[in-house]
Structure formats: structure tokens, C-alpha cells
Nucleic acid binder design. Structure first.
Lengths: 181, 181
DNA sequence: GGCTTGTACTTGCATCTGCAACAAACCCTA
DNA sequence: TAGGGTTTGTTGCAGATGCAAGTACAAGCC
């Protein structure tokens, strides 16, 4: 018997697929263009700053940050290079493990983030949320929320590693401080 | 009085925003990785071939193709360069307007596209549609379909230009053929 | 202690992408 | 038919990004 490939998309499926691709494309492009034009931040850069601002002590190890910002390790290294050159982020060594680097939000970084936040927020509203009713919002979460499951799991895992490592690191540094004192 | 920025996102809005970003990211990355690994085609390359295959005479002018594939003109020029080097696409001059270039699908291009189609289809099902009920599918289209409005308008416009130009071009070429004959 | 294995980041290299400048061709007008 | 303005595609250049290799360090084992 003939080996059958997957069934072709029917109209409904095609529409759903295209809706996801096109709407994302549209929203992201506009958001990115506005953020870049008005505040000189790329979307990945904004996300890095935003994640740092929400992290304890406003710092994250590079590996965790890469997972959050959905960047490769090398991509993150270069982005942090760039942000550091602009003074928005600083690199700190971890006392407990010399391999680990913490990216730390600087006051300038926080300031830039706060100036970019309304632009980002406005864009998200204007290009996405303003076009959705509450019901549509919920439907979107219902339909797509499950899909990002693994992504969220990755983030959660990264968070755990982060928290554990941070605790360990703090402990080690405290011990070091005691010894030094 | 204080200048108020836009209202911060509430939980529902945040969830919708993240659902869109994460799910798209997830689906696209996997799809692209599979297509690249199994058939040696990037997603933009696949889209170019797919659009050509659906076009009359399996050809489109560069400008129309750029709109369809959501690429800048220069990006498309280089992608078509690459596809042409692989023999999947050919460049044809337009008889009526020497500025216009048609990208034409070659038999090899069609063959490659047909081999990639099931991979693409499987990916779309596996990473997106299999996770959606019919109701969720419809809800997605309802919520996001409107957003892609302008994108669709652009495509429609490109199509009209395309059709008009093709007709004009065909007419000119026919006339030329008559003269030559 | 010294060796092996694994982890965390960085760098070399190649690719993709877009903007701006460019060249060629077209169209309209005088 | 010469000139000005427009359209179409291509190229120069710069930036972003990822994979694979490299470096530095840590952890477990002899």
C-alpha cells in the first residue's frame, strides 16, 4: 500500500497557521522598529534588560539569561558585550564558581529600560491587545498557552538552576567575607 | 498633572502576549530546524518555492515574491541567487519591461519542494495543529485573523500588480512573437 | 596530586538580513 | 527626442546570529 504523507491542511487549519505566522510577524516587526527608533534598543536587548530587572538583585548568569531571552550562548555573549559597551549592563564574576558570569543591570540600564517600557507597552497594546476582546485574549491563551509548555519548562529549569546557583554563590561569598573579615 | 503612560498589562493580557510570542517561536524554530536538516531548505527558501509553485506559470516577479515571502528586496535577490545556484529557480527577463525579473520554478525546484512539503506539513501539524481543537483553531483565526489584515492587503496588492503586469507582459510578448513570426 | 570528564562562557567563521547607494529601464512632458 | 522623475532590481556595507572549536575552570576518580 502507498505510504501516505500527512493529510494536507484544510481551510480552517491553513487559516490558523497563517494567522499565527502573519500576526506575529506584523506585531514583532512594528514593535522592534518602534523600540529601535525611539529608544535605540533591539527587542532582544529589551528582553535582556527586562529579565535582569525582574531577577533577584537584578542579575542573572549568562546561561540562564540566554534561556530566558531565547538566544544562543554566543548570541547572548555578543549582546551583553554590546550592552556593556553602552554601560547598560555589567559583568560580575561569581565568587563560588569562576566559570560563571553574572550579567548585572546598571543604573543606566534600568533607566534605559524604564524609558523603553512605555514604548514597548504601547506597542504591545496598539499592535496586538487593542485588537482583541477579553474573550479573544482568553481564547488565545487557551489555544496557544499549552504550546509554550516546553519553553516555560525550560525557563523554570533555568530559574531553578539560577536560584540554586545564586544561593550557593552567595553562601560561598559570605563564607569568603567571613574569612576575610 | 502627571503624564500617564499606557496602563500596564494585566495578567490576562500578559498571558496572551507571551502565548503568541512563545508559541510562534517554538513552532518556527522546530519547523525550520527540521526542514533544514531533512531537506536542506531554510523556511524562507521553502516559502519562495511554495509561492512560485502556486503562481501562474510557476513564476513571479521579484518584487511580488518579496512581498509574499516577507523579505526585503535585497534579501530576496540573495536568496534567489542561492536557489538559482542550486538550480531550483531560474531568472527570466520580462519581454515587456526589461527592469522586471521573473523568478521561475525549475523542475528541480518543484521536485525539491515536493520532497519538502510533507516535512513542512508534518511540522505544522505536529508542532501546532495537533495541539489545537477545531474550536481553538477557529478561535485563533478569529483573534489573530484581523491582525494580519494589512499584510493580506499588501499581498493582494502585490497579486494585482503581478496579474496586471503578467497580462501586460504576455500581451507584449505575444505581440513581439507576432511581429517576429 | 594528577588525570579525565563535564560545564560555562567566548571566539572564529559563515550565513542571513536589511538599509542605503547604485545602475538600468521606463514614463511623461516639453 | 532630451530631460526629469519614478520604478525595479542589485550591490556595498554593517549588524545580528548560530555552530563548532577553543579556553578556563570544576568535580570526580585513580
Amino acid at each position: 500500500m502507498a505510504v501516505q504523507g500527512p493529510r494536507p491542511l484544510d481551510e480552517r487549519e491553513m487559516a490558523a497557521w497563517h494567522a499565527l505566522i502573519r500576526s506575529h510577524n506584523r506585531v514583532i516587526r512594528r514593535l522592534e522598529a518602534e523600540l529601535e527608533a525611539e529608544r535605540g534598543l533591539s527587542l532582544p536587548a529589551y528582553e535582556v534588560l527586562a529579565h535582569l530587572s525582574e531577577a533577584p538583585e537584578q542579575r542573572l548568569r549568562m546561561s540562564a539569561l540566554a534561556v530566558h531571552a531565547v538566544l544562543s550562548p554566543s548570541g547572548l555573549t555578543r549582546l551583553v558585550d554590546k550592552l556593556a559597551r553602552e554601560g547598560l549592563v555589567r559583568r560580575d564574576r561569581c565568587g563560588a564558581d569562576a566559570r560563571v558570569i553574572y550579567a548585572v543591570l546598571t543604573p543606566e540600564g534600568l533607566e534605559r529600560l524604564e524609558s523603553a517600557y512605555p514604548v514597548h507597552l504601547r506597542g504591545v497594546r496598539e499592535h496586538l491587545l487593542d485588537h482583541l476582546s477579553e474573550q479573544q485574549c482568553d481564547a488565545l491563551v487557551d489555544a496557544l498557552g499549552g504550546l509554550s509548555g516546553i519553553g516555560q519548562a525550560d525557563c523554570a529549569a533555568a530559574n531553578e538552576v539560577e536560584v540554586a546557583a545564586a544561593a550557593e554563590c552567595d553562601a560561598a561569598e559570605a563564607a569568603l567575607a567571613d574569612t576575610t573579615a
